[in-house]
Design a protein around this nucleic acid. Sequence first.
DNA 1: CGTTGATTTGAATATCCTCAACGTGCGTGG
DNA 2: CCACGCACGTTGAGGATATTCAAATCAACG
Lengths: 246, 246
Amino acid sequence: MKAIPAATVHRMDRPHPCDVCFQSRFCLPIALPQDELGRMRDIMHNTMRIPKGERLFETGQPMDKVFSVHAGSFKSVVTSPDGRQQIVGFHVPGEMMGLEGFSTRVYMTDVVALEDSEACEIDVRALESSARELPTLQHQIHCLIGNRLARAQQDQFVLGSMQADERLARFLLDLSERYKARGLSPDEFVLRMSREEIGSYLGLKLETVSRLMSRFHQAGLIHVAQRQVKITDREGLAELLVPSER
Amino acid sequence: MKAIPAATVHRMDRPHPCDVCFQSRFCLPIALPQDELGRMRDIMHNTMRIPKGERLFETGQPMDKVFSVHAGSFKSVVTSPDGRQQIVGFHVPGEMMGLEGFSTRVYMTDVVALEDSEACEIDVRALESSARELPTLQHQIHCLIGNRLARAQQDQFVLGSMQADERLARFLLDLSERYKARGLSPDEFVLRMSREEIGSYLGLKLETVSRLMSRFHQAGLIHVAQRQVKITDREGLAELLVPSER
DNA sequence: CGTTGATTTGAATATCCTCAACGTGCGTGG
DNA sequence: CCACGCACGTTGAGGATATTCAAATCAACG
C-alpha cells in the first residue's frame, strides 16, 4: 500500500472532514456532543492519501482499523475462493469502510480507491474503549454497522428481485441521493467507476449496463456522455422501480 | 403477534439456550467470561413461543429488542415500496435477528417463524448499557453485527456472480455447515422452508429450484425426498462452486 | 377419499450474456 | 500539433440460462 499520511493534527476550532461520519444526518437522530467529538478526534490517527487503484486494505489482513472516506471514492470487493470478484459497495465521503471486519477481526473485502482519495484511519481498540465511556458514540457505532447491514440487505433485494433496468435506475437514484446528502449536486455528477464496475456491483455485464445507459438516454430519463451523468427525468427513473406501473 | 412468553426465569447452574449466541464458536475467539454471562442472562428477558407463520417483528416497528433463535427457525424478509418481497436470510438456533435495526432503530425486515419456534428477547437498551461495563460483551456485539454484515456481503456475491446451480449448491452446503456447528447432522436434515422460499433467498423461481434439486439427485450429489435432504457427495457439490473445473 | 397446497416436469419464451466489431477519448511521444 | 496506442465504451447478432405458463403428481389432512 502506497498510502502516505497527509495530516495527523486536527484543530478543534474547525470541522474535521471526518466529523461528518459521527454526526446526525448520515446516521442517528442524535448528533455526537461536542466533548465526545473531541475524543473522537483523538483516535482519528491520521489521514491517508490513497492513489487511484491502490488498496486501502485487503481480504485476510487483521482488522485493527476502520476508515472513513475523507475525499474521493472507493469500492469494496469480495473475492471467492475460485478467484471471481464482485463489488459489494461503493463509498463516498462520510461513509465508513472496513466494518465487516468486526466479524472475525479480519477484513473480508478489498477496498480500492476509484480515484485519488483520502481516508481517515480510526483505531478499533481506541474506538471501542472510547465507546465504553461515551454512550452516544457507542450508539453511533452500532448505527454505522447496522446501516451497512441494512444497505447490504437492500442490495440483496436488488440483486435477487429486480430486473436489469430497475437495478441501474436504482443505482443512479441511490448515487444521486448520497451525493445530495453530502451537499453535492443530485442531478449532475461524474461516475467514478467504469461500466464494468457498475455491472459487477449490479450483477450485470458491462455491455448490459452500457445498453441500458443508452436506452435511458434515448428515453429522455438521463443525459449521459461517458461518465458524465445528468438526471433529466427523476420521476421517469423512479417509475422503473415500480414494474406494476409499466 | 401471537407470541407467548414461554419462560422468564433462567438458572445459572445449567446452560441457557441463548448462551450460545455469546460464546466463542459462533463468533469470537474469546468466550464470554462466566460473570459476564450472568449479566447477559439478566437482560434476556424472556423466551417467546412463535407459532409457524407468525411474525416476530415487522418492518417499520421501533427496534427496542434483538432476538436470538432458541429453537426452530426463522426467515428475514425485505419488502420493497411496491410490495415485492425477498428473503434475505434464514436463521437457525444460536443466531441473532433484528440486528439491521441498529441502523435507524426501526426494524428493516419482517421476521417470520418457519415452524413453531422459540426466540429469546434481548432488550437493546439493557444490552448497550451492559456492554459499556463488559468489554467482552461489547466486542461480541460488534462481532455479531459484523458477522451478519459479512454474511450479507457473501450473499451479494452469490446473487450477483453465481449461476443457479452454484447458488443452490452453496445454499445446501452452507445450511449443512450451520447445522454441523450446532451439533446437528450435517449430512441429513429437513428443509424448514419451501422451494419458493429457497428460490426467493437465492434469486430464483421455485421451478428452477425444484429442477436443480432433481438434477442434483440424479447426479448422485444428494438424496432428496420432499424436504428431507441427504448429502451423499459433498465433494461433488463443492465442485459446483468452482466453475473453472467443469 | 376428496380437497388443498406443494412439488415436479415439460415446452415455449424472455432476458441477459457472449462474442465480435467498431467508436471515442485521452495521454504519450514523435 | 498530430499520430498512435490503449483503455473504455457502444452496438449488433446469436445463444444460453432461467422464467413463464401449463399440466400432472404427490403428500398431508380432515
